Amino acid sequence: MRTNIVVLVALLVLPLSLYAKDKRDFTETFPLDECTFGNEGGNRYFILQPGRELHYDNSDCVEEGDCDELEALTITVTDALQDIMFDGEMISTRVVEEFETADGEFAEQSFNYFAVCQETGDVYYFGEEVFVPDGDQPGAWLAGQEGAMPGIIMPGGAFLLGARYYQEVAPGVALDRAEHTAMGLDVEVPAGAFEDCVEVTETTPLDKKEESTKLYCPNIGLVVDDDLELIGIVE
């Protein structure tokens, strides 16, 4: 992958060996009752602006011989809203579509439901529907059903290095969790060069071998998702 990342000299980044031994719990309960939820806005690293499209692919990885197939991803903040009944309250969430292809063939489509806590800027994840070519719906869940709770996809306010929290809280189905592993990064991808970016490492207790690294940049959002790099934005 051609992504260029520069860590500023003054940046405090915890050693990888420390993360490997880190036994701190991930936060899984959040002050939801203190939030007034909205479905537009978001925060500097996660933007809920209807009509906004972000396009990604792994063409550099393919050209370098490190990837076997050309993958492409489009993330669209749609005009659609999804009402979700949670804890006796109807939450109006924004529908964000992710559409993935592999070598030009359909691979996966998901509809993700997000709402922003207007008091804090935290963007909460309320569930998703997933569709794959064989018709299955792997990992589909909805807050308020079968014990599932909202998680945080991206906190508002300051980005705290070392913060750990669940993004999805659907027991036995979806338990993605995030850890803030770096900040103050300069990142260059096909869509441009960006400063003051942050790194989030995602894992899940459902598969201890699974790990994903994502980079987010201010006022842009997701820029790198493992081998996928941002190649363009449609506002």
Rank of each mutant, 00 (worst) to 15 (best):
F106A: 01
A107G: 04
E108I: 00
E108L: 13
Q109Y: 09
F111P: 08
N112H: 05
Y113R: 01
F114W: 13
F114V: 00
F114R: 05
F114I: 02
A115C: 08
C117F: 06
C117R: 09
E119L: 10
E119M: 11
E119S: 13
E119W: 02
T120N: 02
G121T: 04
D122G: 03
Y125Q: 08
F126M: 07
E129W: 00
E129R: 15
E129V: 01
V130W: 00
F131E: 15
V132G: 12
D134S: 12
D134F: 09
D134A: 10
D134C: 12
D134V: 05
D136W: 00
Q137S: 15
P138Q: 07
G139P: 13
G139M: 04
A140I: 01
A140Q: 13
A140S: 15
L142A: 03
L142N: 04
A143D: 02
G144A: 11
G144H: 11
G144Y: 14
G144E: 09
G144K: 08
G144P: 07
Q145E: 15
E146N: 14
G147I: 09
G151I: 10
I153Q: 06
I153W: 04
I153E: 11
P155D: 06
G156M: 09
G156V: 06
G157D: 01
A158K: 13
F159L: 04
F159E: 00
L160D: 13
R164P: 11
R164G: 07
Y165R: 01
Y166G: 00
Y166L: 03
Q167W: 00
Q167L: 08
Q167N: 12
Q167M: 13
E168I: 02
E168V: 02
A170N: 04
A170P: 11
P171E: 03
P171S: 08
P171T: 06
G172V: 04
G172S: 11
V173H: 04
D176A: 13
D176R: 13
D176H: 12
R177P: 08
R177D: 08
A178W: 00
E179K: 03
E179G: 13
H180E: 05
H180D: 02
T181F: 01
T181R: 15
A182V: 10
L185C: 03
D186P: 05
D186V: 12
E188N: 10
V189Y: 03
A191V: 07
A191I: 05
G192K: 07
G192A: 04
A193I: 05
F194P: 09
F194W: 00
F194Q: 00
D196P: 06
C197M: 08
C197D: 05
V198A: 07
E199L: 14
T201K: 11
T201L: 08
E202A: 13
T203P: 03
T203G: 10
T204I: 10
T204H: 03
L206V: 02
D207M: 05
D207E: 07
D207H: 07
K208V: 14
K208G: 01
E210Y: 15
E210P: 07
E211L: 09
E211H: 10
